[in-house]
Write a protein that binds this DNA or RNA. Structure first.
Lengths: 146, 146
DNA sequence: TTGTTAAATGGTAATAATTACGATAATCGG
DNA sequence: CCGATTATCGTAATTATTACCATTTAACAA
């Protein structure tokens, strides 16, 4: 079992979620296809239901939501399609991403651009989060489009 | 007629779009409710169809898409709801936003955090865009939640 | 003003994604 | 192994969005 799946199951256990066959299958699929890469939720739904013909939409969507709340996967809307990727690393320090708008691949960035000068412009506001992402084509997709 | 509507109609005209009653009504609604504030597309759909009982979904969604392509409105996915706001200003310089996650209000930021140090980490990638947004509660909503 | 043409709209219905519900099944701790 | 609780399945509903096409309308020039 890949270590990423182990980490994910331990998160599930410590939050009193049961380790089911369906959840294991989804985690394995996500580790294989959605590591450092955003994958559309509908394609997850399709794949899981082809591989396990009597798995219900309900189970797939519910589990993805739960995984997201536990930090096991990261959600994103790419264009107009809901996508997820497996969390880079558990307990990793805060960082941001470059995202390939063609294939969904992500590259981690070192810097966080949030600065005091910026938040100082927001007197009276309660800042709870921020998003910083760079879009473009990854080296592979950039070559194909030349 | 508010000047924002005039600006929008001149954009439409110069791109050879027709000035219809439906488009005018939508622009007026957007200027009134979605200036410096993201409003859900479905609520636009609801309002327009209540006010003009035989306006079709088609017209509303198509016009919003066209407005977005012309830069008249800005699209955004808030949580999991598609939203739009009227464009701050036409031909304004590049900037980013604080967005209130409760009411959708936006506050413009002065700085753009994209720097050479950051893009230098992305050798081989073709950078086409970026997103920087700060989330939180605007002063009004922060007070209500205290 | 009126006629012409291209574009926009309305109405209906299809599609796609996601969620609801309730009966059954499976996990886990003891 | 057993009981309590949570998860799953299967079906169907719901919601958002788009397609299609006949009809209407805006723009523009004579």
């Amino acid at each position: 079992m890949p270590s990423a799946v182990k980490e994910a199951t331990s998160v599930l256990k410590s939050n009193h979620f049961k380790i089911t066959k369906q959840r294991m299958a989804m985690l394995e699929f996500l580790v294989n296809t959605a590591t450092k890469k955003f994958v559309e939720v509908t394609s997850i739904d399709n794949f899981m239901r082809q591989t396990f013909p009597n798995m219900s939409h309900n189970t797939i969507y519910r589990n993805i939501s739960e995984f997201a709340e536990l930090g096991i996967v990261e959600r994103q809307v790419q264009g107009d399609r809901a996508s997820v990727k497996f969390q880079c690393d558990f307990e990793q320090e805060h960082h941001h991403h470059f995202i390939c708008s063609n294939c969904g691949k992500v590259i981690e960035l070192k810097d966080c651009p949030l600065s005091k000068e910026i938040t100082d412009q927001l007197g009276g506001c309660k800042v709870t989060g921020h998003l910083f992402q760079i879009y473009g084509l990854c080296p592979e997709c950039a070559q194909l489009n030349e």
